[in-house]
Amino acid sequence: MAAGGDHGSPDSYRSPLASRYASPEMCFVFSDRYKFRTWRQLWLWLAEAEQTLGLPITDEQIQEMKSNLENIDFKMAAEEEKRLRHDVMAHVHTFGHCCPKAAGIIHLGATSCYVGDNTDLIILRNALDLLLPKLARVISRLADFAKERASLPTLGFTHFQPAQLTTVGKRCCLWIQDLCMDLQNLKRVRDDLRFRGVKGTTGTQASFLQLFEGDDHKVEQLDKMVTEKAGFKRAFIITGQTYTRKVDIEVLSVLASLGASVHKICTDIRLLANLKEMEEPFEKQQIGSSAMPYKRNPMRSERCCSLARHLMTLVMDPLQTASVQWFERTLDDSANRRICLAEAFLTADTILNTLQNISEGLVVYPKVIERRIRQELPFMATENIIMAMVKAGGSRQDCHEKIRVLSQQAASVVKQEGGDNDLIERIQVDAYFSPIHSQLDHLLDPSSFTGRASQQVQRFLEEEVYPLLKPYESVMKVKAELCL
């Protein structure tokens, strides 16, 4: 049975990233139509530049190519590739079939990587351009969430054990800070992308030097003109047959890092959902379990974690691919890159769409948070109580021993009897502590235990987050809708 299948058929496997999760716009960027249309555009740009620099290419040939950029006979191309065992030459023939007058000058002087690699770089750039505003929107939604809850005390956790208090907004800023680093890295790697350009079979530009009869300047002009037509500021000066596969490492490393950030955020949300302090959106008709109707599973956060793990592992592909590119190139890269580049971007696209949807509907339960604080705060307040007693004339050592005994009794009630923490009640009825009984409410005010959390939130948002989001103001209103 021949390899390949009808990918629109229910009898043929289709990647869930495309069929179930990723956005239509990201799927289109990695589609065959987008790819092969870009090949034709690159052939047109090459012909236009070659004509401008004096090669015998007519206006009629150029116009014929322009008129057929979208006229792609995919069936013919597939048949040609089956016959020739070469995808680029299959599309040269297919393009030439609908451009008979231009057929002889299509791909003039070029090698397969002229269309293959340059198209990949265009796709990487455009895919990054799709991700950047999506990530900015996630940051914006979380920034709104953090600002609104900047002063809401909550129990902090280290080692997932109760620690000092923080605020809900401050905790959210930990998430935002990681995503801001990801946004900066995505922008950097996007701006650092260079075009492969017009380089020939081993990167020496020998074929173009021959076409222009040894004119170095025209060869350099050709490279520059096509690079500018493709919208790049610069091209690699040095290439082998391909652009260095280190570029793929750079791009997928940034995406993998984004995956790590999203995994951490969504894990926190899942843990908070278990504590009943916070939940992701839950639709009115949504079913959490087929057997347990009360369940409210954090399905979206779980999906993000599941896909983020996949995204983090994909960076190993370009690392290994770059390491086995012998001399000017081997074909070890080809099949692998067809999979890992598309999957990385479709996965990143999915987790950003999902995280935006989550961040637009996060639900906080202040009463649950308050109750958990009441359970733990008495123990945390013991040092403040000791200091207040010393100020009232008591002995630190005597007070410490009193607190120690009462704390152990209260802990026994919590752990052995399943009761509430009654340390404060014990202190309130103990005559030894009568000098500070009137101060206990103040000493137990949760806001006095959150330090500068709310001020940190305000400063972080104003100095770091809002300036970073400013270039994306025009796209901030787009909502994230999930079908599944």
Rank of each mutant, 00 (worst) to 15 (best):
R171L: 02
H263M: 06
N353A: 12
S290R: 01
P446S: 07
V115N: 04
D178W: 02
T166W: 01
A411M: 07
R337D: 03
R190Y: 08
N336C: 11
I373S: 04
A342T: 15
G231A: 11
E360P: 04
I339H: 13
L130K: 13
K101W: 08
H107K: 00
G393N: 09
D333G: 01
G203K: 02
L352R: 03
L255F: 13
L121D: 01
T321H: 00
S395K: 09
N118A: 06
I351C: 12
T239R: 01
Q63L: 12
D120K: 07
A163G: 15
V226W: 03
M299Q: 14
F145M: 01
A150D: 08
M65S: 04
M76C: 15
A411L: 06
T347I: 11
F36P: 02
L124I: 10
V364R: 04
M278Q: 04
T52H: 14
I249V: 11
T350Y: 14
L42G: 00
G109M: 00
T201I: 03
S19A: 09
T242R: 00
Q241P: 00
V198Y: 05
D216V: 09
T166K: 05
L362A: 10
C98L: 13
A453H: 05
E64N: 09
C99E: 05
D268S: 11
L484D: 05
T204D: 04
L314K: 10
S207R: 02
P162W: 08
K35S: 06
R245N: 03
S19T: 00
F160N: 08
F145W: 11
I62Q: 06
A342N: 09
R33W: 06
K224P: 06
T111F: 00
N336A: 14
H263A: 11
L222E: 02
L42C: 12
T58W: 10
L222T: 05
Q397V: 07
R338W: 01
F95N: 08
V189P: 07
D191Y: 09
Y294K: 01
D248M: 00
R190F: 10
E463D: 12
T202K: 03
I351Y: 01
A411S: 09
N384D: 08
L311Q: 08
A381Y: 09
H93T: 15
Q63C: 11
M389W: 02
K391E: 11
N185K: 10
E463L: 12
S448C: 14
E50G: 09
I57M: 05
R303P: 00
H217N: 13
P10S: 15
S257A: 08
K391Y: 11
A2P: 11
I339N: 11
V247A: 14
S257M: 09
L307A: 15
Q325G: 12
H91I: 03
N118D: 02
S359G: 13
L69S: 09
L128G: 07
N384Y: 07
H97D: 14
A136W: 06
L255Y: 05
N353T: 08
R125N: 07
K170D: 00
A150Q: 12
H97G: 10
L319I: 13
L311I: 12
G200Q: 05
L346I: 15
Q177S: 15
R141W: 15
E481R: 15
S306C: 03
S438Y: 11
D333E: 04
L84K: 11
G393V: 06
F195V: 06
V324C: 13
N353S: 14
L482P: 07
R374E: 05
M278I: 14
V457M: 04
R234G: 12
T267R: 01
R372W: 05
A90L: 00
Y432R: 07
E81Q: 09
T313G: 12
C113W: 01
K229W: 04
Y21P: 00
K284M: 14
G96N: 08
G288Y: 02
R396A: 06
L341M: 12
